[in-house]
Design a protein around this nucleic acid. Structure first.
Ligand SMILES: [Zn+2]
Ligand SMILES: [Zn+2]
Ligand SMILES: [Zn+2]
Ligand SMILES: [Zn+2]
Lengths: 184, 184
DNA sequence: ACAATTTTGTTATGATATAACAATTGAATC
DNA sequence: GATTCAATTGTTATATCATAACAAAATTGT
């Protein structure tokens, strides 16, 4: 529930080596996320089964949020059952364990790099390249709690999804002097 | 895009006379919203046709956010065409005109009481009674813009949806001394 | 009246998500 | 190891949310 102070105001850029040569090959992120997942599941007596584990890997391997049916297709390719409940069960498990977030405005799922710290995901979503950056902003969190409390509202969960143009796409659009402006 | 300062930090409680005797019969809200809609559409050379107008009324008459197919059913009862495009077209029009908001986390649509001022809706959503309160919080808006700008991100749209327990439900739950705590 | 534009009707399909129940697997106990 | 119980997965069906494509009708401007 409470956000951890350790990476307050820090951002973690998720998905960033799609096409345009940001070649941070993020195997490190994946390995780290999987290791965290193992640890957390063991600690909590949860079972990170094959399909759950592979689903988590596939979500991380995707460089942007992955839809449930996209994930299902990938799992099916690898011999897992191809019916929807398979993927939704895996997603429910991973969401419950805090290992992934759902981006409501995209109906898509994204690995969380800070699964070990309970928090809600705040996202910056680029309209252009569809990359998503998760950020943690303690000030906003506190302000939202306070604002809700003013209304007598007890805050439990937050969906904060900001869309717009990321730095790279803004640079590209500007420098390329493209005529179509900010397309979608 | 910019939120207007006039109702900064003010909240408008949407949907509040459902069952438990908050008998603000909100005909006033509906009438006011419809009048605003007329004015806005005329000003902008937009046509508030029968189906669009009735859709807006029905959304307002509902005391909580209305799903597209719920709305479609109501329209169909009244002799409008009952195929999905009918309702999605009306919703698109109303969204475009700023007369309603979509609550992403509920896939539902809600009348906006401040359609005359361009803004994004910020919502408090009760897990218990499903009422939704729209609030406007200039401080948070400014902080989000600043935070995004720090990352080089140009903010275009915001989805801010907070869930939890509203004041009434908190009171009910507490006073009823229910054993189940904060269920859901 | 005529043409151009917008809106609506209609059919079909895509995309996202869950219900219900059976079969299998895993872990704990006997 | 066999037994039992709970958790997980398989399977079929369906619910829910949303859009594509094209035809028909209504509205607007001339
Ligand atoms: Zn996270
Ligand atoms: Zn981008
Ligand atoms: Zn509003
Ligand atoms: Zn409530």
């Amino acid at each position: 529930m409470a956000q951890h102070p350790s990476h307050q105001d820090e951002s973690h850029h998720v998905g960033h080596d799609q096409d345009h040569s940001h070649d941070h090959n993020h195997n490190h992120c994946i390995d780290s996320a999987l290791a965290t997942a193992e640890t957390l599941c063991i600690e909590q007596g949860q079972r990170l089964t094959k399909v759950r584990r592979r689903a988590l890997e596939l979500i991380w391997e995707s460089h942007r949020p992955l839809g449930a049916y996209q994930l299902l297709a990938k799992l099916a390719e690898e011999g897992f059952n191809s019916a929807p409940p398979t993927v939704y069960r895996a997603l429910d498990f991973l969401l419950g364990a805090g290992l992934i977030h759902k981006v409501e405005s995209m109906n898509a799922y994204l690995g969380c790099a800070h699964a070990d710290k309970a928090h809600k995901g705040y996202f910056l979503i680029c309209d252009e390249c569809h990359n998503v950056m998760e950020f943690d902003y303690q000030d906003i969190h506190a302000a939202l709690i306070a604002k809700a409390a003013q209304q007598g509202f007890e805050l439990r969960a937050e969906t904060i999804e900001l869309t717009g143009l990321c730095a790279e796409c803004k640079a590209t659009n500007t420098s390329a002097a493209n005529t179509q402006g900010t397309r979608t």
